[in-house]
Design a protein around this nucleic acid. Structure first.
Lengths: 132, 132
DNA sequence: ACATTGCCTGTTATATCATTACATAACCGG
DNA sequence: CCGGTTATGTAATGATATAACAGGCAATGT
């Protein structure tokens, strides 16, 4: 399946996320005019589209924010993490291939077979580094 | 403040988490007999105790599970991550000091001042590595 | 054509996780 | 004792996510 096979709902949700410079929760998406106007009006509709988009790696979930971001570049060759600004919420992807090796061997040493990696860091972006 | 200064509620919540081999949600804690018996009966009571325990680093929150674990060894010298089994939920701490350097320099390269690191990995523990 | 299958959708209700608002009590330093 | 800070109690609400069930619609095999 390619992204051109996305259903209408999925396209609407992906577009909403792509057009945002900050992560959006499912309910944030639901509240967008551009989304309501397309007839999406129930949380489940949003979550279903998000599930599919995540499976296609077109969208990622940020656990520590209960929010979602569009992925800027198709399926990944290496695992990806996120860095968010505490103040303005700006969030960027962070390649974490380098961490993966460390984690995988540490997992192995503890008798775990590692499957999924979640790396989320927060702090301040350049614009927000000073001030409250 | 040392752990001996914990209030009654905080002690009850910490004991509940220490006695569990899997992460517990706030409502899981609230539902425990040993906790109800001590008179804790509102979610907020649990969350307030958890907040304090987290500030003392006696408890950690696992974002991807919306759950909490007791920390097995006082305040940390290096940041800590978690590894959870998808099947039995067993969760262990994972030192992530090695990742920290990588992440911090990556953050710097992207104009971020890094503050907090969240590393959560999932997979299968030895006992669960085969089977559903 | 028609039935079967699989996927997406709509709708309602509910489950789960977390906080706000406000009042009261306990503790401690001046 | 006063005044500040911290902890607590209670009720209500907000925010996030899923369950359960019915129906639509396209692809496929016969």
């Amino acid at each position: 399946m390619t992204s051109s096979d996305l259903t209408r709902n999925q396209q609407v949700v992906l577009k909403a996320l792509s057009g945002s410079n900050v992560p959006l929760s499912a309910y944030d998406i639901l509240d967008l005019e551009q989304v309501r106007d397309q007839g999406l009006k129930a949380p489940l509709t949003i979550y279903r589209a998000l599930d599919k988009l995540q499976a296609l790696e077109l969208v990622h979930r940020i656990e520590s924010l209960n929010a979602f971001v569009a992925c800027d570049h198709g399926p990944h060759s290496e695992p990806v993490g996120f860095m968010s600004c505490d103040r303005c919420r700006k969030t960027i992807e962070l390649p974490v291939g380098a961490c993966e090796d460390v984690l995988r061997s540490s997992a192995k040493a503890n008798g775990f077979k590692l499957d999924r990696i979640t790396v989320e860091v927060s702090g301040r972006c350049t614009d927000c580094v000073e001030g409250t």
